[in-house]
Amino acid sequence: MALEGELAAMMAAAQRGDAAAYRALLKACLPVVAGIARAQGVRGEAVDDVVQDTLMTVHAARASYDPARPFLPWLGAITRRRAIDRLRRAGRRPVEVHDPLAFEAEADPGPAPGAHLETRERGAALARAVAALPEGQRQAVEHLGLRELSLEETAALTGRTKGALKVNLHRAIKALRASLTREGE
């Protein structure tokens, strides 16, 4: 209760016009007011709004504090009232999440459930199909299709002509289409 006595003394000094005591009092009140506001269910930035409202009311109503009585109940009553005012105002403003239509019309941007498993399965099937291709076709698919190298780079890597690579890629895609379609059925 040391805090209580200090605050009451500072408030009495503030009523006499002591600005330094008043400044110290208001600063000491900040965490107290924020704590009471949170206990009332105020969250996030609204806590700071309640602190501001409360300080304004404390200033306007400072004559109503009786120095013979404890200070914290006086401050607490003002804070709780301002917190309730703030919650009521927030309650009147429409919140989109609570609107059923807005909630249902909004698509979930994240992956669908099980999407990860499906992606892995399709990758494994593609890898198996590519591995089963003849050597020339497999190289053409890996370098041109999957790694997205240019014809010149692939020709330099594999030592085949560009024409041969094009033919191999064409045949490989045809073969893959056939094998993957068969597998998918």
Partner: peptide, 25 residues
Amino acid sequence: MAARHEQLVEDLAGRLAPVRPLPRP
């Protein structure tokens, strides 16, 4: 946010005028 409160505290302290506590109810 703390800066906002500091500002208000300074404002209110600057505007402080002595008041006589109200008599008892």
